[in-house]
């Protein structure tokens, strides 16, 4: 009986080890995400993010991402780019790149692919976008400051068509992030109007950067446009180099008090030493 239990134990132990090994050899699942971005300086790029499932999904660095331009019939390799520490690979879209294929009704289709390696599975993802644009204009009537944003897209024959019914968000550029102050859907002319808040702080001259954005749209990706206006409340410039208890230099009253006190005391010490010398000399004269 004992030996049976022993055998069972051994078998189960072996089984555990083997299954563990099988699991250890199992490849990790990878996912690749892709977004289209158009910056305020009209630069366009694709950002692919490679993530791998550990306990949860984490970025994978130094993985090779293949960027393709895709049509119904063809698939052209545009570039291979390594991911950075955040798992991101950036492909810059040049207008004059002959490899990029324009699809029907102005739609561009891209594909990003990660081919995988011995421990990580392959992954790919497609993205289809239309190339749009945002135009920001600023108006001021009396004390009312308003912003007009018009959204347009480029049609098949390079004609410009207003985008209707797309959400446009408005932000002020902060130190670390964008501070939202408005959101509206475009009308049939692709236009929105938003009033600018009256109490937004600017820089020392009141200048601030206003950002209009189509954010992560299915058709248009992320499009950003921005402009600088002196619509903010000017802030006080920070004064450096003061004198105070908490500063490098002491307040003047403290400096003077200390000098007066110490010189009064130490002058007397010197005087005492002078008198001691005098005691010695006085006797010498006898």
């Amino acid at each position: 009986m004992k030996s049976v239990i022993k055998h069972i134990l051994i078998i189960s132990l072996v089984a555990t080890i083997t299954t563990d090994n099988i699991f250890a050899q199992k490849k990790k699942t990878a996912r690749v995400q892709v977004g289209y971005f158009k910056n305020y300086d009209k630069a366009e790029h694709l950002v692919a993010t490679l993530i791998v499932k550990e306990k949860r999904y984490v970025p994978l660095s130094n993985g090779v991402i293949h960027f393709y331009s895709v049509s119904d019939t063809s698939r052209v390799l545009l570039s291979k780019i390594h991911t950075d520490n955040d798992g991101k690979a950036v492909f810059i879209i040049n207008d004059d790149n002959p490899k990029i294929i324009k699809g029907p009704s102005g739609v561009f289709t891209f594909e990003v692919e990660y081919e995988g390696n011995s421990s990580v599975n392959a992954a790919k993802r497609k993205i289809a976008i239309k190339r749009g644009d945002l135009e920001v204009s600023f108006f001021q009537k009396d004390s009312t400051k308003s912003i007009e944003v018009s959204a347009t897209e480029i049609g098949l024959n390079d004609q410009i068509i207003p985008i209707e019914g797309v959400n446009i968000l408005l932000y002020v550029q902060g130190t670390f992030s964008l501070l939202n102050f408005g959101k509206e859907k475009t009308d049939e002319n692709g236009i929105i109007h938003i009033d600018f808040p009256t109490d937004m702080p600017g820089d020392t001259t009141g200048v601030l950067t206003i950002v209009a954005k189509i954010d992560d749209n299915k058709t248009f990706g992320t499009i950003e446009s921005r402009g600088e206006m002196n619509w903010g409340i000017p802030i006080e410039p920070v004064k450096e180099k003061q004198r105070g208890l908490g500063d490098t230099d002491a307040p003047l009253w403290m400096v003077y008090t200390l000098i007066i006190l110490l010189s009064a005391v130490w002058f007397h010490y010197l005087y005492v030493i002078f008198l001691i010398v005098k005691i010695k000399l006085v006797n010498g004269s006898i």
């Binding site: 902060g174 670390f176 964008l178 802030i235």
Partner: peptide, 30 residues
């Protein structure tokens, strides 16, 4: 970039920002 603790907080309990620009972010919302 914001300090490491801000982005590490899973609940967005920590906001960081600039008093002069009057905006703070917890990594996801500003």
């Amino acid at each position: 970039k914001v300090p490491h603790c801000i982005t590490a907080c899973p609940n967005g309990a920590l906001y960081f920002g600039d008093q002069i620009a009057d905006s703070v972010t917890n990594g996801s919302e500003t």
